[in-house]
Nucleic acid binder design. Structure first.
Length: 896
RNA sequence: GCCCGCUUGGCUCAGUGGUAGAGCACUCGCUUCACACGCGAGGGGUCAAUGGUUCGAAUCCAUUAGCGGGCACCA
């Protein structure tokens, strides 16, 4: 048999994916059952510019586990892949390329530039898609989508037009976040606030016709050039007499009023606030309340405008700041400057400080949209978040405070806003230019130059990818999707918006459940990031430990924030090797045997260990199915790991060896071999969603695998593959409590003897005699039937089984549950001192426990108030322990 | 400032009213015919602190501390 001793993941990883893909195993059409239930996931579209990171690998693993599990359960499954066009990042990337050629996008012009972006996309975009193949992701590539596809673009236009017609979308002049670097407006969610050390400047503004001065505090002195008022709290007695007074704005020598506004916090700073309506969101609001002029002093490049005065015109905002301070100093109006820490708004992408500016932009009104999502949560509790705490609250709290969404972007790469203007500025929003012309009654139209926020198209992803606005078969079949798996930082940006648009246009939730993954941190508990250079490349981990091992780690992480640790992957790499070698053993002993279709009922010829492993297998299937359905992936992994390693390898294989490794063919041997293979095959199926490669690799080598093992929905659709085998479900009739407890007694017996051997320093090669005493006939029958197993695994020569213990004084002994005892005669080998110490230690341990139980039973309130079964359980346990202590004490007496 | 979460063996994490768990690391033994990426046997935790509820608390409640997250404010 030419099976290597060590599993080589790369070999298997290079084999199976291409075949699965080629044979259409990932597409829902593989399922031929017209009544099959449907399971759908749409992938969170990664950026076309992106490459695989640990967060993706985590999400993809979970989605693949669910998809493969459901597929094997006979669901018509669709996991739909794709990417978004990442407006800003992509445009920046291509602009950078152009820069190397000494060009700007303006040199090319809009049309040529967009062609260039498409070219870039075809040549070097979407690296992540091939990386997903490596991951084993069972996505349906035939349905791959891109947000800039014609179909999805049509959906965008349709949504825009409908929202515009219903008054949700409007164009208006409002204060927005402007990134002077990227030259585009940003939504509130694309701005990150970072704490920063700065200065707080106290500036004095003279009161007109008085010697008095009012001091205002500011972190941005340069904006004072655009001040049009100073505000104080109406209740603030310090300034009461000044409300309505006129101040002389220094440098500009502009007369500005003192206004009273509740917004001002008398406790903060000086209690007087300079008001710059054109350059601060709060001042903007105040400006509207008091009808203040908006003087724009900073332009789109963050330089000072003409309105800032000739002296400042053209200066960068930070240069202007220095100059303003200089001026105030000269004028003797700079009261003081203090160190001050405050948070500053930066562009999430380029980290440039954003400039709040008043601009004409497109907005989406969110008040009614938000009600659609909140109503869905109130009525149906959807989407159900996992973990529910804290995400359901985070989600609803955010929705409740939602402001209007700035949807236009000053970019070229993206969905150009379907609005056309006539020469005199009339606007026509339409699905196409033709429609706009018809509505306008003229051909002389110019389309709005802006594009839409990338998230505007992502918000439609669950239905636009399925063909909406057409009522396609896919849309009918696969919407709403079953579950969304994503990271917590896009709950607002994406999840909430999909729910709102889904409710608005499909009248139905886009997904029933939302699973929020944990964050993979570095070993110091820090987020992985490019800037910190602390990221771990999943592909490196794949290379080092294999995809399957990495997937087990990721599946175990699930929704928990976890510090990445290679040790964990190594442990699962070892597990993969264990699986490999267990299969290797089975295959080396497989002549004359075939994989069966599973177990339907216990066979006459089954030994205790057969009934036991089948029971364990069914328990495992039950737990694993439940765990995956409940998104408890770590529990599924843990259960499978211990079933395979502890139950199957450590015990079942060992107990089977005797029969299975017989040289000569016989009905018994081949039956045992077939049972062994069948258990292995069932275990591989259970593992497959988590470890697709090794399970397929081994499955293909098993004798007797054919289409009969496939789920009925897939039979005769393709070559047999484990990914279409039926996922084992628990059969209650095969769960055998008695077999499990009998087997446990045998396991305990063997473990106790091994313990004695170790503690008595008996060489592994040395066989010992064993005397077993058990008071009950049934116990003796179990031990009797397990003679060969005990002899083999405890390495004994002769085994005596009796009702009462009669053993030489020079024996090491142990007391088992149920009143059973064992003795290992050790003439000449036993050190009585050691033995006494060993037994005393054990006695002590048991006595401590029995003391606890006795105290519990001595408490009348416990006996009275605790459930009756709990009380009797304690009584039983105490009885058993007391009995064991009694026997141990006798034994100790005997060897004194 | 408001809301939320976490704190369990050396490390990474499960457990969530009724006998404290796993993997790794550690100790001892092993060329046992699948596997040293292994086999066998062990050691190790007053479950952050305090108080409460309960017959019974790692688990429920309250307070405190440390760490982390979200939101708001930041003139």
């Amino acid at each position: 048999m030419d099976i290597p001793k060590t599993y080589d993941p790369k070999q298997a990883e290079s084999q199976h994916y291409a075949r699965w893909e080629r044979e259409g195993c990932f597409a829902p059409e593989i399922n031929r059952d017209p009544n099959a239930p449907v399971f759908t996931i749409v992938i969170p579209p990664p950026n076309v510019t992106g490459s695989l990171h640990m967060g993706h690998a985590l999400q993809h693993t979970l989605m693949d586990v669910m998809t493969r599990h459901k597929r094997m359960c006979g669901f018509r499954t669709l996991w739909l892949p794709g990417m978004d066009h990442a407006g800003i990042s992509t445009q920046l990337m291509v602009s950078r390329e152009l820069k190397k050629e000494g060009l700007t996008r303006h040199d090319l012009g809009r049309e040529k530039f967009i062609e260039r972006v498409w070219k870039w996309k075809h040549e070097s975009g979407g690296q992540i898609l091939n990386q997903m193949r490596r991951e084993g992701a069972s996505v349906d590539w035939s349905r791959e989508r891109f947000t800039m596809d014609e179909g999805l673009s049509r959906a965008v236009r349709e949504v825009f037009v409908r929202l515009y017609e219903e008054g949700y979308i409007y164009r208006g002049n409002r204060i927005v976040n402007w990134c002077p670097q990227d030259q585009t407006v940003l939504s509130d969610l694309e701005v990150e606030k970072t704490p920063e050390k700065g200065k707080l400047y106290y500036l004095q503004y003279p009161v007109k016709g008085s010697e008095r001065r009012v001091t205002v505090a500011t972190t941005r002195p340069e904006t004072m050039l655009g001040d049009t008022a100073v505000a104080v709290n109406p209740k603030d007695e310090r300034y009461g007499d000044l409300v309505g007074a006129t101040l002389i704005l220094p440098i500009m020598n502009r007369e500005i009023p003192v206004v009273a506004d509740e917004y001002v916090d008398p406790e903060f700073g000086t209690g007087a606030v300079k008001v710059t309506p054109a350059h601060d969101p709060n001042d903007y609001e105040m400006g509207l309340r008091h009808d203040l002029p908006q003087i724009v002093v900073i332009d789109l490049n963050a330089r000072m405008t003409q309105d800032a005065g000739a002296e400042f015109f053209g200066l960068d905002r930070y240069k202007a700041r220095e100059k303003v301070i200089e001026k105030f100093e000269q004028l003797g109006l700079l009261e003081k400057v203090i160190d001050y820490e405050f948070s500053i708004s930066k562009c999430e992408r380029c980290k440039t400080v954003v400039e709040p500016l008043i601009m004409l932009q497109w907005f989406c009104k969110m008040d009614e949209m938000r009600e659609l999502a909140l109503g869905l949560m109130r009525r149906e509790g959807k989407p159900r978040f996992t973990p529910q705490v804290p995400y359901e609250k985070v989600y609803t709290d955010w929705l409740e405070n939602l402001k209007d969404w700035t949807i236009s972007r000053q970019l070229w790469w993206g969905h150009q806003i379907p609005a056309w203007y006539t020469k005199d500025g009339q606007v026509f929003v339409a699905r196409s230019e033709e429609e706009a012309r018809a509505a306008a009654g003229t051909d002389e139209l110019t389309q709005d130059q802006d594009v839409l926020d990338t998230w505007f198209s992502s918000a439609l992803w669950p239905f636009s990818t399925l063909g909406w606005p057409d009522e396609t078969e896919d849309l009918k079949t696969f919407y709403p999707t079953s579950v969304l798996v994503t990271a917590r930082d896009i709950i607002f940006l994406w999840v909430s918006r999909m729910v709102m648009t889904g409710m608005k246009f499909m009248k139905e939730t886009p997904f029933d459940d939302t699973f929020i993954t944990g964050t993979v941190l570095d070993k110091h508990g820090q987020r992985m990031s490019k800037t910190k250079m602390n990221g771990i490349d999943p592909l490196d981990v794949f290379d080092k430990y294999g995809v399957d091992a990495t997937r087990l780690v990721l599946a175990s992480i699930g929704s928990t924030d976890t510090r990445w640790n290679d040790n964990q992957v190594e442990a699962y790499r070892n597990f993969a090797n264990k699986i490999w070698n267990a299969a290797r053993f089975c295959l080396m002993n497989s002549e004359g045997a075939r994989v069966g279709r599973g177990f339907e009922k216990p066979g006459e010829e089954w030994a205790l260990h057969d009934r036991w492993i089948v029971s364990r297998l069914n328990q495992t299937a039950r737990v694993v199915n439940d765990a995956v359905n409940a998104y408890q992936f770590h529990e599924a992994v843990h259960t499978l790991y211990h079933f395979f390693w502890d139950d199957f390898c450590d015990w079942y294989i060992e107990l089977s060896k005797q029969e299975v490794s017989a040289e000569a063919a016989s009905e018994e041997r081949d039956g045992a071999r077939s049972r062994l293979l069948t258990v292995l095959e069932q275990a591989l199926r259970l593992l497959h969603p988590f470890m697709p490669y090794i399970t397929e690799e081994l499955w293909q080598r098993l004798p007797g695998v054919d289409e009969k093992l496939l789920h009925p929905a897939y039979r005769e659709t393709t070559h047999p593959t484990i990914m279409l085998a039926e996922y084992p479900q628990a059969n209650a009739e095969l769960i055998d409590e008695r077999a499990e407890s009998e087997m446990q007694a045998v396991i305990n017996l063997i473990s106790r003897v091994r313990n004695i051997r170790t503690e008595m320093n008996i060489k592994p090669s040395e066989r010992v005699r064993l005397i077993i005493a058990a008071p009950y006939e049934a116990q003796r029958a179990v031990f009797e039937a397990s003679r060969a197993a005990v002899a083999r695994l405890a390495r004994t020569s002769e085994i005596l089984i009796r009702e009462r213990l009669e053993a030489p004084r020079a024996s090491a002994r142990a007391v088992l549950a149920g009143g059973a005892e064992v003795a290992v005669p050790l003439e000449g080998l036993i050190d009585f001192e050691t033995e006494r110490a060993r037994l005393s230690r054990e006695t002590e341990k048991l006595q401590k426990e029995s003391a606890k139980l006795e105290a519990q039973l001595a408490n009348p309130q416990f006996v009275e108030r605790a459930p009756a079964e709990k009380v009797s359980e304690i009584r039983e346990r105490l009885g058993d322990i007391t009995e064991r202590v009694r026997r141990l004490t006798e034994t100790l007496e005997a060897i004194k």
